[in-house]
Amino acid sequence: MSSWVGQAIRRGRLTTRYPAEPATELELPMLARAPRPPAVVPDRLGAIAACPVAALSAAGGSGIRADEGRCIRCARCAAHGFDFSGSAECSRPDRAGLLVPPVPSGPGARAVPLRQLGRSVHVFLVDAGSCNACNHEVLALTNPYYDAQRLGIFFTNSPRHADVLLVVGVPTAEMTEPVRRAFEALPSPKAVVAVGVCPIGGGVFQSTPGLAGSLEELVPVDAFVPGCPPAPVSVLDAILGLLGRSRARTEG
């Protein structure tokens, strides 16, 4: 046993400084970042047509609007001058907030639904039909590099003990009822986080018949984390955002 401890001590501190410091290049590789159009897109229609998930649309003037809730980071738009340079704080409390540049919208969702929980929040993971990448990214929050427990975020084994439901994957017909039941099992106050583009808008499966279009059709969603899959730091930021402890909020 002492050798295990010795090995752990020799490895030293691995844990990220996030959210006290911004996410590093290794924590947020290129394709975990959001697409940003260049100042001038030479071939606007070509760029819009290149996107396989219809995440790009024409905006006012000669601009392009990118929908981060649809973008699967295939980087085909890179040929049209797009780059991937967003920050880890990419989650938004409302669906319209994922549009860049934003469109003017009505009153937004509750921005801080779980503020009263303060420094301790229990989360439960539900797979509505994912490819398993988002599952692994969420579970990575428990590894020493992210160590979500240090921020008071704990994974529970039952939705009845949870405050936050993390939903990954595109909701399939078979999972709609189990997802609803899991949501109902959470005690109030509760919040739902859509992790990845699949629960937000179906991602690459958005046009497949037999799948629910989005998680919003099943349960109310309090935070949308775009990405395919989102980086663990982005999921961390979304959970902290529910408590009013997001890095974006404390800075701004």
């Binding site: 295990w4 691995l14 394709l31 295939c74 990575a140 992210y146 980086a231």
Partner: peptide, 23 residues
């Protein structure tokens, strides 16, 4: 410790291919 190594692997993949899951 093993979970940390798995995370290091994902970071290696992310640095090499730009994507932690090789999409």
């Amino acid at each position: 410790q093993t979970h940390a190594l798995a995370e290091e692997m994902l970071r290696i993949e992310g640095r090499t291919f730009g994507h932690r899951w090789l999409f």
